[in-house]
Structure formats: structure tokens, C-alpha cells
Design a protein around this nucleic acid. Structure first.
Length: 480
RNA sequence: GGGGUUGUCGUCUAGCUUGGUAUGAUGCCAGCCUCGGGCGCUGGAGGUCGUCGGUUCAAAUCCGACCAGCCCCA
């Protein structure tokens, strides 16, 4: 038994250290030389590529087209919408020089691209025939995160997609916001196996410059909430300062109604935090770059025949569109490989040795339940497919139970605080809608209103802050 | 925004209090041994001790600044 390799802390003992070790040791990402930035390594990028392709498909199907925007935004554009600028100002990186000479106008490194995109929209849109305009951009955004960084969860630069649309009326923009949120929800729940709560952000928490924000929230294993994706209705807040106008069928000039929305590589962090265990990651089969890892177990004299069998099995699985891989490295023992792939979170492993070949069978080992069983070579494909499905749904179910068990309700501030302190999670409370009450709770408990649910359960009482009777249901939580 | 803490071969680490030759493991390379849960043996390479400056005959060690990581609180 060698020490100091693998994950050295338990998930339940030191969640933060456990998470960082998972990210680093599974080769997902590494720290960069400059503060707050990380480097996504091939294993992490492979996961991102799968997520990106899945989402890109859905966006194309719903009529969105990809484009590319410059990373630098002139100061004059960024400042055009005041709330938007005030909100992002503290974390904007600025470019002020080219070589030795000062630039005439400061350039902001994009914290998000609404302003530059909409400066172009105003050129491209002039008729109702130009609408709706639905664009998407796969890029990175930069926001100076000096304190409290965490790989993939909070960094100064992150990969994401940002969608930007323009519509003829408010209703169409409303629908777009919900279409996108549904696409996100489906991706996150059905593919990443992460259950979410969906709803609105409060005025305080909404995107700066938006009319309203919808979002998806998930619960991490340590009881903290994590915002997974957001979809904003921008109203005409940007179309007016950016003068994005069109002539409608009645030849009346109107401002467009807009939406913007995004999801980032943060979801990879969520997958790790929610699904992982003391041995490392557990990746949902649908987004795992390797779904089945085949480990040949051989001695010198059986090496050739066992490896040959492993390659055959790999090909059989690949022929059925299963992402299979053989670990044929001679320099590691099979035991080492077992641990390595478990740390990387590959959902299903196939063990094959001389013994198995003689008996015409192989051993399958599930990463999520550690369950192991033998199948004949003939059954391999079907068993693999059905087991991958079982793993996928089991992972979602487990996470769903965790979410349900950690979603409680409280009627008083004391009760809320005690729930947050003992178990974290989401706490449903009644709220009068006033900012002062929201701030009061934040001050007393450090929790935010994570979400104003689309589907409240209607267990309404008096406001958690001021005791007023007319209230709505909201979910509080401490968040990353 | 406030406070705390850490930085030594690729990785983890001893040494720092009390200044004087850099410790061990793992990984890497070569060779042997074989592999059903992080095998074993032999030999070898690998270090501007985070960076810059100061004190000193002498600094990983003492002092200062900076850089980077982590934690706690707002």
C-alpha cells in the first residue's frame, strides 16, 4: 500500500480539500501561474467538449446560431447601461496600453458580452424581418476573483456559452427565456444527473441590467447551494441605450425585447461535488469521456492473449457507440489501474484475465455502487448498455434524495439559522418581497434567497423578516 | 473588504525554534521480477529551498517587501 497518492481526505471530513484534490489528482485541471486562473487539462476539457456538443445541438435545433465576439470592449460601450456597468465594475480587468504607448480609450476584458453584442445588434436589426435574432457564443469571460477562488467554481476566467437574442415583443422574449431554461434543466438533470430547483431570482440577486432573471440551483454535498445556469429577460433595458430598433409591420419604429443566458464549466465542479466519493470522481455515463475502461489482467506468459481479448472487447463496445478504452499500460499493475480509474470516475470497468477468457466471461464493476458481476462475452454489449443506464439513473436518484432530504422549511429567523447551521441545504420560507427583509436574513444568517420557485408548495405563513402576512414562498441557502 | 495560514527535486515531506554539508518517500530512468485491489529487488538521474532585497564571515533557517495556494469571517 503506497500512501500520498489518491485522495487522502474523506469527503465528509474536509469537503473543501477533498474537492480540490479531486480536481487536481484526476487531471481535470491545474492551477495556473497567475492568481485566480486555472488550466483545464485534456481530461477536463474532454468533459467540457461533451457538454458543449450536447448543448450546441439543442441550441441549433431551436434556431440559434453561433458566432464569435472580441474579448476587448471599449469603455464607452461597457458603461452605456448604468446598472450593468456598476454591477460588473469591481471585477473588470482593463487593458490600458499597447506596447509602451497608452491607449486612447481603455479597453475592458469582457466580463460578459451584452454591450459589445448589442452595439452590433443595432447595426444588424432594422426590420421585423430581422427578428428574432438568436445568437450564441462559446467563449470565456473574465472577472477578477481575487478572494475565495475554487477551481471551476469561482475563477478569474471561465469557459461558458453566452446566448443573446432580440425579439419583436415582450411575450416572445418571455418564451425564449423559458425555452432556454428548459434546455438547461434537461441538460443538467438528464445528462449531468444533477437535480435542480427552478425559479426566479429576486430583484437583489438578478443579473445587473436585467428585467428579471430565471435560474437553476443545485445543492452540493456539503449543503451549499450552487447556481447552475441563468436565463435573463433584459426587457428593453439594453435596446434603448444601444438603440436597437426595428420597423414593425405597421411601419412603427420599436425597440427590441431581449434575452441573454449562460452556463459555464462550473457545472463540472458541481458534478464532482455532488457525485464524487472518498475514492474520487464518479462521472455520469452520458458525459463521461470514457464510459467503460477495460483492464486486462495478465502475467508475462498470458500478456499477449489477454491484451488481444481486451482490444476485441473494446472494439465490440465501440461498434455499439460505447466510449470504451483499454488500459494496456505495462508499467502499472492492475490494482493500480483500478484505483486510478476509480479516482477519475469512469462509470463502468471491465476486468478480463486468463481465468475469465477460459470461462468465456468478463467481470463488470460499477463505479457508483461498487457492485460487481460476471457476464458472458455475448451479453457484454447489452449488459453494458443497461448498466450504464442504471448508473445514470441511480446517480440522479441519489442526488435527488439528497436534495429532498435537505430541503426543509422554517417560519422564524431562529429556525432558519439553526437549520442552516446544522445541515445546510435549502430552506423554504415566506417572504414579503421587501429588500430590507432579504438583507436582514443575509445579515443574521449569511444566507441568500437562492430562488423564488416557479412551483411553490404554498405553505405560506408570515414573512420571515417582518412578520407581514402577504408573502410568497422562497428558498434560502448559503451559496458558493 | 477583514483575519489567519502555507510555500523545500515532478509530487508529498524532514530540517527553521538555536544560521554552517539538503532528509525520506513516491514518481522518473536502466535492469531483473510479474500483475485478480495502489507488487518486490538492485542501481541511477533529479534542488537558483516561491521571488526580490536586507542582516551576517556564512541564510532553507533571522528581517522586509512582493508573488502564489489554502482556510475562516463579511
Amino acid at each position: 500500500m503506497t500512501k500520498e497518492i489518491g485522495i487522502t481526505v474523506k469527503k465528509s471530513n474536509d469537503f473543501s480539500d477533498w474537492y480540490t484534490q479531486c480536481v487536481l489528482k484526476s487531471s481535470i485541471a491545474d492551477y495556473s501561474p497567475s492568481k485566480g486562473f486555472i488550466i483545464l487539462r485534456p481530461y477536463g476539457y474532454a468533459i467540457w467538449e461533451i457538454i458543449r456538443e450536447l448543448l450546441d445541438d439543442e441550441l441549433r435545433k431551436t434556431g440559434h446560431k453561433n458566432g464569435f465576439l472580441p474579448v476587448l470592449i471599449p469603455e464607452s460601450l461597457l458603461t452605456k447601461e448604468k446598472d450593468h456597468f456598476d454591477g460588473f465594475m469591481p471585477e473588470v480587468f482593463w487593458v490600458t496600453k499597447s506596447g509602451d504607448s497608452d491607449l486612447g480609450e481603455k479597453l475592458a476584458v469582457r466580463p460578459t458580452s451584452e454591450t459589445i453584442a448589442y452595439s452590433m445588434f443595432s447595426k444588424w436589426i432594422s426590420s421585423y424581418r430581422d427578428l428574432p435574432l438568436k445568437m450564441n457564443f462559446w467563449n470565456s469571460a473574465l472577472r477578477a476573483e481575487i478572494k475565495s477562488t475554487k477551481p471551476l467554481i469561482r475563477n478569474s476566467e471561465f469557459l461558458w456559452q453566452e446566448g443573446h437574442t432580440a425579439h419583436k415583443d415582450e411575450n416572445e422574449a418571455d418564451q425564449e427565456v423559458r425555452v432556454i431554461l428548459d434546455i438547461y434543466k434537461n441538460l443538467i438533470e438528464q445528462f449531468l444527473a444533477l437535480p435542480t430547483l427552478s425559479g426566479f431570482k429576486t430583484e437583489k440577486e438578478k443579473f445587473v441590467g436585467a428585467k428579471y432573471t430565471t435560474c437553476l440551483e443545485s445543492l452540493m454535498a456539503d449543503g451549499k447551494a450552487l447556481q447552475m445556469a441563468t436565463s435573463h429577460h433584459l426587457g428593453q433595458n439594453f435596446s434603448k441605450p444601444f438603440e436597437i430598433k426595428f420597423l414593425n409591420k405597421d411601419t412603427v419604429e420599436q425597440f427590441v425585447w431581449q434575452t441573454s443566458w449562460g452556463i459555464s464549466w462550473r457545472v463540472i465542479g458541481a458534478i464532482i461535488m455532488v457525485h464524487g466519493d472518498d475514492k474520487g470522481l464518479i462521472l455520469p455515463p452520458k458525459i463521461s469521456p470514457t464510459q467503460v475502461i477495460i483492464v486486462p489482467i495478465y502475467k508475462d506468459d498470458s500478456k499477449a492473449v489477454v491484451k488481444q481479448k481486451a482490444y476485441e472487447l473494446e472494439q465490440i463496445l465501440k461498434d455499439s457507440k460505447i466510449r470504451a478504452q483499454t488500459d494496456d499500460r505495462d508499467e502499472y499493475t492492475s490494482g493500480w489501474k483500478f484505483n486510478d480509474w476509480e479516482m477519475k470516475g469512469v462509470p463502468l470497468r471491465v476486468n478480463v484475465g486468463l481465468r475469465d477468457i477460459k470461462e468465456n466471461k468478463v467481470e463488470l464493476i460499477r463505479r457508483d455502487t461498487k457492485e460487481r458481476f460476471y457476464v458472458t462475452e455475448k451479453e457484454l454489449v447489452n449488459q453494458t448498455l443497461s448498466t450504464l443506464e442504471k448508473i445514470q439513473s441511480n446517480m440522479f436518484d441519489r442526488a435527488k434524495i439528497h436534495l429532498q432530504e435537505n430541503t426543509r422549511s422554517a417560519t422564524t429567523l431562529e429556525e432558519l439559522l439553526s437549520l442552516l447551521d446544522t445541515s445546510g441545504g435549502f430552506v423554504a420560507c415566506s417572504w414579503c418581497g421587501k429588500r430590507e427583509c432579504e438583507d436582514l436574513v443575509k445579515e443574521k444568517t449569511t444566507a441568500d434567497i437562492r430562488i423564488v420557485p416557479f412551483n411553490p408548495k404554498n405553505n405560506i405563513s408570515s414573512c420571515i423578516g417582518c412578520g407581514k402576512q402577504e408573502t410568497i414562498e422562497v428558498y434560502f441557502g448559503r451559496a458558493y
